[in-house]
């Protein structure tokens, strides 16, 4: 018979076949061995990797849902919501509460179930319910992710000095003496350069109480504080003798001088003049009016 040109690929000798099979078998065994040897570190790397990915997911959830109350860096907003990125939170909080579980479980539980509003709360906001099991928007795995993210502040928070700790003591929990760790809200920068109003609006916690997008009307009232969406048209008519800008500046520096109807005095923090320079407050007021006008 005529042999085809690719004849060479036919292995005919039984010895060659056995050798080939044996070599392949050895290779397979060697690869098994290799996989076996690296299994331990591989599993460890995978474990770390999935924790890491969970933190990434949690960071995204936090950025989208929690920063309006707990601040972009988790250090809380004065009067709005407590700090989580805080030395006190990671060391003392559970002891003061008398909570028996771990901090991880405490965070996961709080996030999932929220906090029922107390009749009188020091916080302008209430902690919403997040977990889907309790009627919130986040799936269980997302609650775990955001918890992993909050817990990941630990290393950084433990290095905070007493002055740096942004903790605002809870009025309804026993507080271990943490003198010197009282809330020290951000104050005017030392170099005197004015900060941007849109940053101040977040950093100072205004957005935790006020909504800048919506108008304040009879049937659309802000729940905690007036909406500021139509400030430009309203501000001039609030107090006789004050033009819009003066009124807004005054509302920031001396909130209790004039209380908008339907809201209580003393909710809006009164220490803004200590925390912002006069220039910054004026800029902020002007910016608020501009934003409202742009709406």
């Amino acid at each position: 018979m005529k042999r085809p040109w690719y004849n060479f690929i036919y292995v005919r000798s039984p010895i060659a076949k056995i050798l080939l099979g044996g070599a392949a078998l050895l290779l397979t065994l060697a690869l098994f061995g290799f996989t076996f040897i690296i299994e331990e570190p591989r599993m460890e790397a995978q474990t770390n990797s999935w924790t890491g990915r969970s933190i990434e997911k949690g960071a995204e959830i936090f950025a989208n849902n929690c920063t309006s109350c707990h601040g972009v860096d988790g250090k809380g907003l004065p009067g709005v919501a407590p700090a989580l990125h805080s030395h006190y939170f990671f060391t003392q909080r559970l002891t003061d509460l008398g909570y028996a579980g771990s901090l991880h479980d405490y965070v996961a539980g709080t996030v999932a179930a929220g906090r029922p509003s107390k009749a009188i709360s020091q916080w302008a906001q209430i902690m919403p319910t997040w977990g889907v099991n309790y009627g919130g928007p986040l799936r269980n795995d997302q609650v775990q992710d955001v918890t992993a993210f909050v817990m990941n502040w630990e290393q950084d928070a433990l290095q905070q000095t007493a002055e740096e700790d942004p903790w605002q003591p809870f009025q309804d929990a026993k507080t271990t003496d943490i003198s010197g760790t009282m809330a020290l809200p951000p104050s005017a920068p030392a170099d005197g350069e004015a900060r941007a109003p849109q940053d101040l609006f977040t950093v100072m916690g205004c957005q935790g109480c006020h909504n800048l997008e919506q108008d304040q009307t009879a049937d659309n009232r802000g729940a905690i504080a007036p909406n500021l969406g139509n400030l430009d048209t309203e501000a001039g008519n609030m107090v006789a003798g004050q033009d819009a800008l003066t009124y807004v500046i005054n509302s920031i520096t001396h909130p209790n001088d004039f209380i908008v109807e339907g809201y209580a005095a003393g909710i809006m923090p009164q220490n803004f003049p200590d925390r912002m320079s006069a220039e910054e407050i004026a800029n902020l007021a002007q910016w608020l009016l501009d934003q409202a006008a742009a709406n």
Binding site: N48, S49, E56
Partner: peptide
Amino acid sequence: RFFFLHEDSL
């Protein structure tokens, strides 16, 4: 648009 990246994630 922002994304996060963790040191350990593969």
